[in-house]
């Protein structure tokens, strides 16, 4: 006698379906970091802290593998200095490093327009499973800018 459980088709797992619009099926996926990414990882730009910063952000969750802190100094509406520290994977370090170089000396309103794609493009691409890391630098930058704006509002 067979157990009924084994004859019940509903207990079968559904067939695996490829997600629609799967980006990886369109183009050859990048499987490893390119030279630019490795350069920003081994020699990250703008690492450190800023004393008396005008804006600060702490984002990410170290328990999930990534955390970063980012400081900005603002003068006359321009980012005159930006520094970061990161606990994270090479992708997180490299994208954060590149994000800081892209906004250094840039007008705040322009810096706010920076997107993850801008950072990834400036790095010449990052492996697809590392795309989420690119969110870190840009998200931290935007959070630091809004921290600066809140502080300015409180002062005025």
């Amino acid at each position: 006698m067979k157990s009924e459980k084994f004859d019940d088709d509903s207990s079968q797992e559904p067939a695996i379906q490829r997600p629609e619009g799967d980006e990886e099926s369109q183009a050859e996926p990048v499987i490893f970091y390119n030279e630019t990414v490795i350069d920003h990882f081994t020699n990250p730009r703008n690492v450190g802290e800023i004393d008396n910063a005008d804006g600060f952000a702490l984002i990410g969750d170290p328990a999930c593998g990534d955390q970063m802190k980012l400081w900005i100094k603002v003068a006359a509406g321009y980012i005159v200095d930006v520094k970061f520290k990161s606990f994270g994977c090479p992708g997180a370090i490299a994208t954060s490093s590149m994000a800081t170089t892209l906004v250094m000396g840039v007008y705040l309103d322009d810096a706010k327009q920076l997107t993850d794609d801008d950072v990834v493009q400036a790095l010449g691409g990052i492996p697809s499973n590392k795309k989420h890391c690119s969110l870190m630098g840009v998200a931290a930058l935007k959070a630091a800018i809004s921290d600066y704006e809140q502080r300015s509002e409180q002062q005025s």
């Binding site: 970091y33 490795i38 990882f41 081994t42 593998g65 606990f87 994270g88 994977c89 090479p90």
Partner: peptide, 14 residues
């Protein structure tokens, strides 16, 4: 403690 393993791996790999 205090570091993320993949970052060590890549430095070693290089």
């Amino acid at each position: 403690s205090g570091i993320e393993s993949e970052s060590v791996l890549l430095h070693l790999d290089l």
